[in-house]
């Protein structure tokens, strides 16, 4: 069920990425598919995150002026890195997830830019400004989207919490009255 939810969220993210820039230019700086991929990786859904990363990257590249596959490459790499971190560090808290989104966005942008430089195609946007704006836009949008996604999947989070933090074993207290009877 969770996989279906993430897939639907990713399809919506790709559609938003395709359309929103024409509505308002600042939306260009929000990487919606990346937010969903990081979310999938944080759910320890590594295989899903990797596949979705490649698919969404190619879907964005297909309508972009960049090299086809560059976004797929960077997003796959980010999905793997985040899933590895999520495996080793407990990141289910939203406050911990915010720097992960920011870091993922930074790595994604740097890999994307680096690949284009490597293959001799310089993007027309100024590098530092674009990376800074994407970082801010994606992190803010990501926080709100994660709040929505968490609200939609509260059951799973509760179950995960139960798995991670099993109820503490209570020591059985002796009955003080009985003790007094001795």
């Amino acid at each position: 069920m969770e996989q279906v939810k993430i897939t639907i969220a990713l399809i919506i993210a790709i559609i938003l990425q395709w359309t929103l820039r024409n509505v308002a230019e600042p939306f260009a700086y929000v990487d919606f598919p990346l937010i969903i991929i990081v979310y999938a990786a944080l759910q320890r859904n590594a295989i899903n995150a990797l596949i979705l990363g490649t698919i969404s990257g190619i879907a964005v590249d297909a309508l972009s002026g960049g090299i086809l596959g560059a976004n797929g490459f960077s997003k796959t790499l980010v999905a793997y890195a985040v899933s590895e971190i999520a495996r080793r560090v407990y990141l289910d808290n939203l406050l911990l997830q915010i720097p992960v989104i920011a870091g993922a966005c930074l790595v994604d942008d740097l890999v994307f830019y680096g690949l284009h430089r490597l293959l001799g195609q310089v993007p027309s946007a100024p590098v530092v400004v674009t990376i800074a704006y994407s970082l801010i836009g994606t992190t803010i949008a990501g926080t709100f989207i994660y709040l929505i996604l968490r609200a939609l999947s509260t059951d799973k989070i509760r179950r995960q919490k139960r798995d991670f933090f099993a109820p503490r074993r209570q020591t059985r207290r002796r009955n003080p009255i009985r003790l007094g009877r001795r």
């Binding site: 490649t54 490459f73 796959t76 793997y80």
Partner: peptide, 24 residues
């Protein structure tokens, strides 16, 4: 899953790289 993930990543990255080369 953890054993499979690095291999899957390598395959997908290679796929993307082939696509980039073809596109260029």
């Amino acid at each position: 899953v953890w054993r499979l993930t690095p291999w899957l990543m390598i395959v997908l990255l290679l796929g993307n790289f082939v696509l980039m080369a073809y596109d260029a």
